[in-house]
Amino acid sequence: MIGINGHIAPGFEAIGDAFAAAFDGLPQMGGALAIRVDGRSVVDLWAGSADARIDRPWERDTPSVVFSCSKGLMSILVARLAASGRVDLDSPLAALWPEFGQRGKDAVTVGDALAHRAGVPALSVDLTTQELLDFDRVAALLAAQEPLWKPGEAWAYHALTHGWISGEIVRRASGRSAAVAFREMADLLGADAWLGLPAEHTGSAAHLFVGASLQGLVAQQAAQRVPGVVDWGDRAMTLGGALPSTLVGEAEGFNTPAVQAAVIPGAGVVATARAVAAMWSATVAETDGVRLLDDDTVVAATRERTAGAPFFDAPPPWPRWGAGFQLDSEARRYLGSSSFGHDGAGGQVAFADLDSRVGFSFVTNWMEAVDDHRATRIVDALRGIVA
């Protein structure tokens, strides 16, 4: 039995059982779970290893890379700017970022670009890891990129490029860099969350491990590639060589201090589960005296903009998207129709639910892929309680 640390409020005991079950058969895994209801912490748990190589346990304040959960947090920033009138979700992105209007991308709206409809899920040029660390360099290349389809008329998951889109929206609309704007939002809640891990926290993040199902999926995808045909899905993850297909390795990708310190808004937030849950909670309920979004802003930002089959063939179920927010769907089941959030590579899940005033975050350093039910079972248990 894994040793579980933390607290569970009365009535939420089933959540503890589901969290413990996430560790079954994964003795090297570490992870944390935080849930708030009406702003109040009802679950705050952690367990396992932050780095099994050196027997470092997961502590109360262990941060971890949350991968694409970063997109949801960046979308909160954009929604806040929309609420203040500095961003119009239905106006062309090029009105904020004129350089992005090149090569037929002039008409795509801010909201549709955030909903993976901009036509630039990957770059056609190969990036080095060093170039990946340069936010301005990648943003310029993305602005100059020719879209793969007429923007706004189809969608495909912008696995990493989404972050430079949201980051530029924040920078152009607020006058602050994405990293500074994110830090200001986190500071409102006293949250241990960073977009670009500061030097004083180097080495604090959990070490990431690639599990068997993720290794197998990447190997299967590589075997199915047709020579001479661009695999845009892989390029979306690797940017042509800047990252491994799994996003991490023993000493590469998001396991390295340089990548963790870089501003990569589509995947690079480093945070504790407690911090992420607090930020999501504050989108739907006053949390530690802070409300990040009002109800009307949530409704506007979570209007469905993308659903159905993507531009590149993929079997169902398919996700649904608002203005950067992942909505409840068969592909990612949350609590119900008023839920919005974002999951992340390897098993991370974070979201809020407007009806039940829930903020949720599950993070793990043990990355799996196919049939990974760890977070899903926790969400299912929570649904049974709050329903």
Score class of each variant (00 low, 15 high):
Arg235Ala: 02
Ala20Met: 10
Arg357Glu: 08
Thr302Pro: 07
Arg225His: 04
Gly344Ala: 08
Val230Gly: 05
Met237Thr: 12
Asp88Val: 06
Leu73Gln: 14
Leu293Gly: 03
Gly163Trp: 01
Asp90Ile: 13
Ile54Met: 09
Ala34Asn: 12
Ala242Val: 00
Ala154Gln: 08
Val125Pro: 04
Ser339Arg: 08
Phe311Tyr: 13
Glu168Trp: 00
Arg53Ser: 12
Ala52Phe: 07
Glu184Cys: 10
Leu208Trp: 01
Gly175Asp: 10
Pro121Asp: 04
Leu247Tyr: 09
Phe23Lys: 06
Ala22Leu: 02
Asp313Pro: 08
Met74Val: 06
Phe362Leu: 14
Ala193Asp: 07
Leu148Tyr: 13
Pro310Gly: 05
Leu160Gly: 01
Ala261Arg: 09
Ser337Tyr: 07
Ser339Gln: 13
Leu189Thr: 01
Ala205Leu: 02
Gln220Leu: 12
Leu354His: 00
Val210Asn: 11
Val42Asp: 01
Pro244Lys: 09
Ala350Ile: 04
Ala21Asn: 11
Ala34His: 15
Ile2Met: 13
Glu131Arg: 12
Phe12Gln: 10
Ser68Val: 03
Ser84Met: 11
Ala369Trp: 11
Glu153Ser: 15
Arg176Ser: 13
Ala50Cys: 12
His373Glu: 13
Val180Ala: 14
Ile8His: 01
Arg171Met: 07
Asp17Gly: 13
His162Gly: 00
Gly203Ala: 08
Glu146His: 08
Gly25Asp: 10
Gly249Lys: 05
Gly347Lys: 03
Trp149Pro: 00
Gly119Pro: 06
Thr297Trp: 06
Pro151Phe: 01
Leu247Gln: 01
Gly266His: 09
Ala178Ser: 11
Gly48Phe: 08
Leu93Pro: 04
Ala277Ile: 03
Gln326Leu: 15
Val66Pro: 01
Arg332Tyr: 13
Ser339Cys: 13
Gly175Ser: 10
Pro265Ala: 09
Val218Asp: 03
Val37Pro: 01
Phe312Gln: 13
Val358Pro: 05
Asp234Phe: 04
Arg56Ala: 15
Val349Tyr: 07
Asp296Cys: 10
His7Ala: 14
Ala14Asp: 13
